[in-house]
Design a protein around this nucleic acid. Structure first.
Lengths: 149, 149
DNA sequence: TATAATCCTGATTATAATAGTAGAGTATAC
DNA sequence: GTATACTCTACTATTATAATCAGGATTATA
């Protein structure tokens, strides 16, 4: 598993939408989000479009348009998003059908280990929702407060 | 963490040397190993040279030269090699000092999770040595025997 | 209904990582 | 000395990633 910049942007975008998620959701404009997160606007557009295809976010067009979370933060786990945006652990050789490496005896010796790693990883990221992340965000903010006084 | 082809080759190279590791080690020629593993010779050369720099293998030049394991397979863990050849989980943004993303409040919310993932991963791959892999290799061979009879 | 603010679509470019190639050089056994 | 192996440096091709650009489609509101 590897998180690229694009994937990192996607996670931060969802977190940003989670921060702005109230009972009556107000659409968040790409421009504003891009400013807050320091992401090139046009690049963030692409990221959000993909997230929309993935069913994580929705959008409203027109004058008061913008993006909003498709469901409450507590219903979106980190695992769901990461599986959508990140690559698996194994090299392509071990994953593809018409793989190049992994012939004969060498085929599965490492693969078993990669699968154990994947399983352990999933167990962790499936256990973290975006409302959990919001909480730890608030906790961090409070800690900062103390220092600022 | 992500295993590239090069990394995959490195692991298989060490496994091959482990297979040919006896009390009196006999150097394994690059050419032969490349043939067995179906890896371009010149590419495997580079891989082995790096593994030498990493202290995993040794080499003998000249007519009866070749590569051999620097220490017994039971003393080489998968973790040691993977840390040497693979990249971490996080995007560069979270790792570097002069990072681009991860400003302000967003800085550490995901990072904590990535670190938990890394820790869990290390726990697994540090617990597997190349003699363990040899064992499971033999086990798989035996299973195949049964079917062949 | 005009219009302004927004999302949407596709193509294009720039940079870096990865994978692989080439060839001259150095040590060693016989 | 020579054949055979590793050693080293540089290069090229391919792919992935990151970012940009130009225009088009949609829609709330004045």
């Amino acid at each position: 598993m590897r998180i690229t910049y694009k994937g990192d942007y996607a996670l931060k975008a969802i977190l940003d939408l989670a921060i702005h998620y109230y009972d009556k959701p107000v659409p968040v404009r790409i421009q504003h989000m891009a400013g807050r997160l320091d992401i090139p606007i046009k690049f963030l557009e692409q990221v959000l479009l993909e997230l929309k295809k993935g069913g994580f976010v929705e959008s409203r067009r027109g004058k008061v348009g913008g993006y909003l979370l498709a469901r409450p933060p507590s219903k979106i786990s980190l695992g769901q998003v990461v599986r959508f945006i990140a690559s698996p652990v194994e090299p392509i050789a071990c994953v593809e059908d018409g793989y190049k490496g992994c012939r004969d005896i060498y085929k599965c010796v490492f693969r078993d280990v990669w699968q154990r790693v994947s399983a352990a990883t999933m167990r962790i990221i499936d256990g973290v929702t975006f409302s959990d992340l919001l909480e730890s965000l608030n906790r961090k903010d409070k800690e900062q407060m103390v220092y600022q006084i």
